[in-house]
Design a protein around this nucleic acid. Structure first.
Lengths: 343, 343
DNA sequence: CTGAAAGCGCTTACAG
DNA sequence: CTGAAAGCGCTTACAG
């Protein structure tokens, strides 16, 4: 299937020396002319620029980087590229870096510590100016260590070492905001079904929800129903919650998937949403929220902002102003028809 | 919030000269020792290795790259990072490259030609050895041109220039396989509802479906119902299809989202799946297929394989064996309960 | 087996 | 204003 190239052997990439030769100047002069240094005669500069243009000269960033001691490259070490969380964080970071002319080297370690070390070495030997490490869970992860030659920012999964800089989503406050939204709508009999109790995201959201209720002198209706992050669990748990507490008027679901399952069960049982029961999810995952019947109110965890903040903190650290400790990014409730009719 | 670093000013990254000094040899000898060249005394090699270990020396890939004329870096230029398709392609490519010690520079152009040119220049000045361009639609896109200094492989969206190398999914054959699966189950009255007619993916799948029916002496029941790639359209179009052809026994849905909508409408109308009507989708998007009631049979477009193949073709091209023209990656039907009871 | 010399592509003082 | 000299970190012939 492969044939020989249609343009023959690839031409050598033009170098600054080529530009200088064509313009009839020395290499240093060509360098200064192209880099906008002051001490160059306007005519000379023009000639050099023309020559560069003519042969499509692109400066070799690697050579520049060796001299500058900075590569303008950062490493993005993710552990769950496939998952729901890494991607928007990565987009936010790519966006923030791109604007600042930083390039992003992407590696996916897939939750494998060996692979992570391998990628870490590859990134360091490529002399990245810094590193963002994206975890797939909100539970703390082991630090990459304090001896790294470049600054590191941990995103989503915080580092277990407080001396490191970590940017996380605030799940406690997410749980609180969800309940406050419901209370503001006059709901008072709130049940909570959520995912795997092994995830701090599940426990933290429950903590926030209970705190908001307590502040209003209320309690959850029924126990926190931990299970799995799936629609199937959302359906099953909703049946159980309704059987035990037929008078509940609001359901806080630990994820949009669980909420989709809840909506289906409510529909199957003829319970009106939001008139009889209001439903709210977490993550604001578009493909799930907008297609739901009715469209699903959800707490947006602001992953893209998280990515942008992480990128900004890394740029600050590279610039000599490192931050330490954990910083939480704010979340917000996206109101739709599952809590407010017609919204 | 930022405080001064806890380890003081960052130490200079150790260089080969440091290793040589500690080992008491010249820089060239240190280089040969570390690179496994033959003409080095075993004792010398050991001393150099120990020295390198001692100061955690990591060779500067940039300097090596300048000499080698190869950076071991490839650019991945995507246009729809957020979307359904780019990510698995990117994962497949990252996987294939990672194994071959290639690093991946990621850029997201977001369907903006200006931004694409900007990123292209940045990648070229970083001297990537090659480029994969990932589109967000299966429709052909304009070529980046034949004059690029490095090989390019187009993934998902093929280049409009046949001299370029493009790797695509085979939508016609996907449509055919979907219908053949249904015919094999004894269905004969197949309707088709799908997404935006402006997408070649929608038209190609319809073409394949009709071809498979024609080969069996059959025709689609009702017109191809083009609309949008959403659950809402899936619900609406299914109502329309059932109203017009109450005797249909199978529904080919242009995407998993459309299929989810179809399943909901069938359920609402009391039509049994798969007993009365079998339903099949496209994309095999896990979050949608496994949670469906019943779980959704879907054509897997093999995006990860597509990414791996694209990476392989790029490596071949970098190695001097470029391929030209369009190569399609095979697809496969993932059978679940929506076509085969209990599957 | 070892190291002085030359060089990759570039930039930064420093003479003229 | 311009260019010869020195150098970044590394490697590859080439003498010894």
């Amino acid at each position: 299937m492969s044939t020989s190239g249609h343009t023959g052997p690839r031409a050598r990439t033009p170098t600054l020396r080529d530009v200088a030769r064509i313009a009839g100047v020395s290499v240093p002069t060509a360098s200064k002319a192209l880099n906008g240094r002051a001490d160059v005669h306007p005519d000379t500069r023009r000639r050099v620029q023309d020559a560069a243009e003519q042969i499509s000269f692109t400066p070799n960033t690697l050579a520049q980087a060796i001299l500058a001691g900075q590569t303008g490259t950062v490493g993005l070490l993710t552990n769950d590229l496939d998952g729901r969380f890494s991607l928007p964080i990565l987009m936010g970071a790519e966006d923030a870096f791109g604007a600042g002319k930083m390039s992003v080297l992407l590696c996916d370690a897939r939750e494998d510590a060996i692979r992570e070390q391998y990628h870490l070495r590859a990134l360091l030997s490529r002399r990245v100016d810094g590193l963002i490490v994206v975890g797939s869970r909100t539970d703390p992860r082991t630090s990459l260590g304090r001896e790294l030659p470049v600054p590191v920012v941990y995103a989503y999964a915080p580092s277990a070492d407080d001396a490191d800089c970590s940017i996380i989503v605030d799940n406690v406050s997410a749980g609180r905001l969800a309940v406050e939204h419901l209370l503001g709508l006059g709901r008072a009999r709130v049940a909570h079904i959520t995912g795997d109790v092994g995830y701090s995201a599940a426990r933290d959201r429950a903590t926030g929800a209970e705190a908001a209720l307590a502040a209003a002198g209320l309690e959850l209706v029924g126990p926190v129903r931990y299970g799995s992050w799936s629609e199937a669990w959302g359906r099953a748990a909703t049946h159980a919650a309704l059987d035990q507490n037929p008078d509940l008027d609001a359901l806080v679901c630990g994820s949009d998937q669980i909420a989709r399952g809840a909506l289906d069960t409510l529909r199957d049982r003829g319970v009106r949403v939001p008139e009889d029961v209001a439903v709210i999810g977490f993550d604001n995952w578009d493909v799930l929220t907008s297609a739901a019947r009715p469209p699903l109110t959800s707490v947006d965890m602001n992953f893209e902002l998280l990515g942008r903040v992480a990128a900004q903190r890394l740029v600050d650290a590279i610039g000599g102003n490192p931050a330490h400790g954990v910083e939480a990014v704010p979340v917000r409730v996206m109101v739709r028809g599952s809590t407010v009719a017609g919204a």
